[in-house]
Write a protein that binds this DNA or RNA. Sequence first.
DNA 1: CTTGACATGTTATAATATCACGCTCATATC
DNA 2: GATATGAGCGTGATATTATAACATGTCAAG
Lengths: 170, 170
Amino acid sequence: MPHDPKSCLGCEAPDLAFARHDHGPCSAEALARAEAVVVARGLRLTPVRRRTLEILLEGHRAMGAYDVLERLAADGFGNQPPVAYRALEFLTNQGLAHRIQRLNAFAACMHTGEVHAPAFLICRACNHVAEAAAAPVAAALAASAAETGFAIERSTIEALGLCPACQGAA
Amino acid sequence: MPHDPKSCLGCEAPDLAFARHDHGPCSAEALARAEAVVVARGLRLTPVRRRTLEILLEGHRAMGAYDVLERLAADGFGNQPPVAYRALEFLTNQGLAHRIQRLNAFAACMHTGEVHAPAFLICRACNHVAEAAAAPVAAALAASAAETGFAIERSTIEALGLCPACQGAA
DNA sequence: CTTGACATGTTATAATATCACGCTCATATC
DNA sequence: GATATGAGCGTGATATTATAACATGTCAAG
């Protein structure tokens, strides 16, 4: 697929998050890692699951379940919602994709294999999403929770604002 | 209304977040503050809006829009979704209530008037929600975002885990 | 070659959210 | 007082997101 720099999740480096770059390698690497991770866990990256991940990687942005479903259906897979939701659930459970609550959407994980607490930066102007490093954020949250005796298992950290490009435009 | 300690959002002090306490005063104060805030902005806390806030305060927990709607309808207000959604949107815009993305639900704000970046601690066992102080968390997030040049306007910080009571039960 | 576990497909429906229109009522203006 | 104005509300219709329930297919272990 053609690379749309505006829709790029920011493959690895934080400073590339919203910057123009060639993200072809990101997709290829992510797929290879996904395969490895899944197999290592004794699970299967079936055709639907693999294709779903590819679709998320190609778009390189957050996609709704029904958008994914449309693509899957076009590729000859089932065209009913559970097909997409099941594949997406599998991927998110395995940490190969993330759910963006604010958008009711899903995005391929750009740091598969590494332990990470993802934080998402969502541009309200161009609607694109970057996955930022959030270890310090998660730590601060854990500390805050500890004051109440609350034990965190998973955290959702999402920010809405303007990406560099859209700040310039405004 | 009777005070259900298990469903308490934790009115003010962090250490009361999941602890048994009398939250009657919380509701009364929150309503009074809401009135003041809204009037100060030249806006109106109309009957539906006021009642919506009361409902959120009474439940003292996250409620779905349709739960709120049911209550409103029972009180003689309209019984179509926009009635609830509009009131909830107003309240969230004014910072009088928050939306919990993970639950597709709404909760009255416990810190009306104070500037605050809310973080929500959601117990996956008893489903109750506490609003924790998140200033350090928001700061860490802002720092992380700054690396990419992203300008944060609003952030969503939510954690799923076990509250103290449910940790004991398990 | 049968069993059992998992994955997929399909039908149906639930849950959440928004659009569009018209009415009312308070206020501002003449 | 008459009348324009606009915010707020009620309603019907519909869009969007998500899950339940069950049938069918696949494949490896025994």
